[in-house]
């Protein structure tokens, strides 16, 4: 029979060991809302990099163990739906090779992109940075997450029309969810926030307005 004090010590040791080695897996899930915005009148290709498609963030914290946030699939689905409703025509393309011999002018003098022929431009969204705060770090009652996106828009000839950095931010109360659910919710809100800014602001960018005007002029000619 093990004495009571040894049993207590053993339990505390097991508890401490489990806290150090525990991993919090955060799954990000949510709805895919269709943005109510005017579509930009352009035929655009979108290239999602492998990193964007499978983005996972991992951080080891001394107090709370390892955090693994898998936002790739939800982020990809969200952006597919978002961009599809922002342009009059959108299709997914492989990595654009603007310098390929296939790119150039057709017989009618129209620019084309080689493999991405017939498109007015190509958009490439990237996740530059992801970060999160837990209540124990921030001292506040909620989990928060931020995602820095880079949105690159190329025209037909492969020149950069726009290079925007947009930060999406989200927070969720820690009280009503578990830690993983709360951070998943905060991350989803960060994706929505970033998406909202892209949906509203992209068509208002002077470069995009000039690009659309140029295409309209070319069509008129």
């Amino acid at each position: 029979m093990i004495p009571v004090r040894y049993r207590v010590c053993l339990m505390l040791t097991i508890l401490a060991a489990s806290c150090v080695s525990c991993t919090t897996n955060v799954m990000v899930a949510g709805s895919l809302p269709t943005p109510l915005v005017s579509k930009i009148p352009a035929r655009v290709g979108v290239h999602f990099t492998d990193e964007f498609k499978t983005f996972t963030y991992k951080e080891v914290m001394r107090e709370s163990g390892t955090w693994k946030i898998d936002l790739g699939q939800q982020n990809l689905d969200f952006f597919r739906n978002l961009l599809d409703n922002m342009f009059s025509h959108l299709e997914e393309v492989d990595e654009p090779n603007f310098g390929s011999p296939e790119a150039g002018h057709d017989k009618a003098g129209q620019h084309y992109f080689g493999r991405n022929g017939g498109l007015d431009g190509v958009i490439i969204p990237k996740i530059v940075k992801y970060g999160f705060l837990t209540p124990s770090i921030s001292g506040l009652n909620f989990y928060s997450a931020s995602i820095q996106y880079q949105i690159l828009l190329y025209d037909q000839s492969g020149e950069v029309i726009g290079d925007w950095n947009i930060v999406g931010y989200g927070k969720s109360e820690g009280g009503s969810f578990g830690a993983d659910d709360a951070l998943g919710e905060a991350t989803m809100l960060a994706i929505r926030d970033g998406g909202a800014r892209i949906a509203i602001e992209m068509s208002q960018q002077p470069q995009v307005i000039a690009w659309v005007d140029k295409m309209k002029q070319a069509e008129g000619d």
Binding site: P33, T34, P35, L36, V37, Y169, L189, R192, D193, G195, A196, R197, A199, I200
Partner: peptide, 9 residues
């Protein structure tokens, strides 16, 4: 009504 009723919009 996305994106018109998000916290920042």
């Amino acid at each position: 009504l996305y994106p018109w009723f998000e916290p920042r919009t």
